[in-house]
Amino acid sequence: MKALIEKLTNVFSPSGFEDAIREVIRKEIKGFADEIHVDALGNLIARKGASAGVRDGKRVMVAAHMDEIGLMVTHVDENGFARFSNVGAVFGRYAPSGRVRFANGAAGVINNELLSNFRETPPLDKMFIDVGATSQKDCPVKLGDVAAFERPFLDLGKRVVAKSLDDRSGVAVLIETLRRLGSGPNEVYFVFTAQEEVGARGAGPAAYGIDPDVAIAVDVTSTGDTPMGRKMEVALGRGPAIKVKDAGMLADPRVVSWMVKTAEKNKIPYQREVLIMGSTDARAIQVTRAGVAAGGVSIPARYVHSPSEMVDMDDVENSVRLLVALLKSRVSL
């Protein structure tokens, strides 16, 4: 799993430009799904199990978003400095001195205009990317090019650090779940969604197309386990977090109880999540068509939306175990 996560987090695919990561995921799931297709939004959808009318099982959608936050070049000045806008929630405090990588392989570093107060966090429009160019002419990037943060994968043993663990750790969990699932009563759609970071734009249309009975979003959630951190009980290493609420939705209570019971029955550690900031694909899926019973299995993560996010490998493994147990079960909500 560690190697898979490293491979996935090394791919640069900001929202709307998911080609590179889609290609990598497609190779990883080859041979494990009954049917694979890409929809109009760029969601990669892999079906496993009964088609042609689900008989006695349920149609279940499991979603993890494959896009990541990033930047788009908005202007290149005469000296070759690129100005940029954010794609998704890029926090100013994490950007300066960060390194970025473009789809065409070009790289650069972010810095900012000299500020009168050097203690203040500069807004993104006071920042620029220096790609090592000497003029507009020899600048290897142009308007509309997108980049993502570059930071080498760091193996700390039980825990790993990388950019885009939000939500490539979730993508890895889905891939591994698909590999281990085998046969079961349900028709399961593994959806690697596009454009989550720009407002959960991919998941809704994917759900509309699939029309599931039940849906689970697998994403990261913040924790309250750092010095003087946020008031939240979720901590790294205590198991996957079963979403009760986040800032965008309330998880379907029937799904919450299905997850809790399944975890307890299979002796899988879990935590209950009430997240104060942020939301996931489940928000968009829940209100699709006549409504979908939607919930979330969240991987606890520290420093979310920084280039150095951290997850615990035990939580990743237990997320896979919980998902496999859920998807193999007969769902009656």
Partner: peptide
């Protein structure tokens, strides 16, 4: 979310 009304209307 205004989600109950949206889905009931659908």
């Amino acid at each position: 979310t205004l989600g109950g009304a949206a889905t009931s209307a659908f």
